[in-house]
């Protein structure tokens, strides 16, 4: 029954001032779809709640040279409808469209999805495959940028310090030789946490006719979303044929076995991983051919 102070910064300066007050009992409120229940749990003490939902400056998708920059407070509904995301980060669009329900996507943000650090976060899985970098801001006004994989430490654990807010994700925009996809297995067609998810990014060289720059993000098979180098190596340099799909599928099952040995859900997940991989592979085919090279 302790008191909680709420600040709702509207500008970066106000945000920095708010972050400067942060203690270990301070929470950042993005969409709130997970946090609202968390802070209301009996015994949970929150001294300061920093409501980021009045920060329009943190909600954007924009091109910056070769990079795509996504503000942390961009909602999944916005990502799902964004033309730049559609063209240059298709896997993120697909992941966004499969997060929760319309009501959840309307408020849940990509920043919150990552900061919440759920192993089955769809947005995080896509960003991992996109090799995203995270930019944070702290109470001294300092901005720091580091790879997403260094931020996600485990289930519910991040490397973010008290008073450090995610403000932006950035990753190389996918060009017209790239394709990406996202696939997910839940309990239902819609509105289900992922039991398994995969984000797949490949470059298809039209001259050599082989796959390169393969990046595979896996979700819900371990403590946090991660890229699997072994799996990626299997596809590198291969033609985009059915055999590659098979290799991806078997490699995916292997990756699951390596990630959750002995886990109760393993017998299911190692088999479902095959279907997941085929889903992701096939979904590459609906990835829009990108517009003529940007920049």
């Amino acid at each position: 029954m302790s008191t909680t102070d709420v600040v709702a910064p509207a500008t970066t300066d106000e945000l920095v001032a708010a972050l400067a007050r942060a203690t270990p009992m301070t929470r950042l409120l993005a969409g709130g779809t997970d946090l609202v229940n968390d802070i209301r749990r009996p015994g949970r003490q929150t001294d300061l709640l920093i409501d980021l939902s009045h920060m329009p400056a943190l909600s954007y998708v924009r091109h910056d040279g070769d990079m795509l920059r996504v503000g942390a407070m961009t909602t999944f509904t916005e990502l799902q409808a964004d033309p730049l995301v559609h063209e240059h980060a298709f896997c993120l669009e697909r992941a966004a469209s499969q997060v929760g329900s319309a009501q959840i996507r309307n408020v849940a943000t990509i920043g919150g999805n990552v900061a919440n650090a759920s192993p089955c976060a769809d947005g995080a899985t896509a960003l991992v495959a996109l090799s995203a970098e995270v930019t944070t801001l702290d109470g001294s006004g300092h901005r720091a940028t580091r790879p997403l994989r260094d931020v996600l430490l485990g289930s519910g654990r991040t490397a973010l310090t008290d008073g450090e807010a995610i403000v932006e994700f950035a990753f190389a925009a996918l060009g017209n030789e790239h394709r990406s996809a996202f696939a997910k297995i839940g309990w239902r067609t819609a509105v289900s946490v992922a039991r398994l998810s995969m984000a797949l990014v490949v470059r298809f060289d039209p001259v050599a006719e082989v796959l390169s720059e393969v990046r595979v993000g896996l979700g819900a098979v371990g403590e946090t979303a991660f890229r699997d180098a072994v799996l990626e190596g299997l596809l590198e340099g291969r033609p985009a044929d059915e055999e590659s799909a098979r290799i991806l599928a078997e490699g995916c099952a292997d990756a699951v076995r390596r990630s959750i040995p002995g886990r109760y859900s393993l017998p299911y997940k190692e088999r479902a991983a095959v279907g997941l991989a085929y889903d992701a592979w096939n979904a590459l085919r609906i990835c829009p051919p990108c517009e003529p090279a940007w920049g």
Binding site: I185, T189, Y268, R271, A272, V274, G275, L276, Y278
Partner: peptide
Amino acid sequence: VDCATGLTA
């Protein structure tokens, strides 16, 4: 039935 995922529609 999706024999790969076990999901039934």
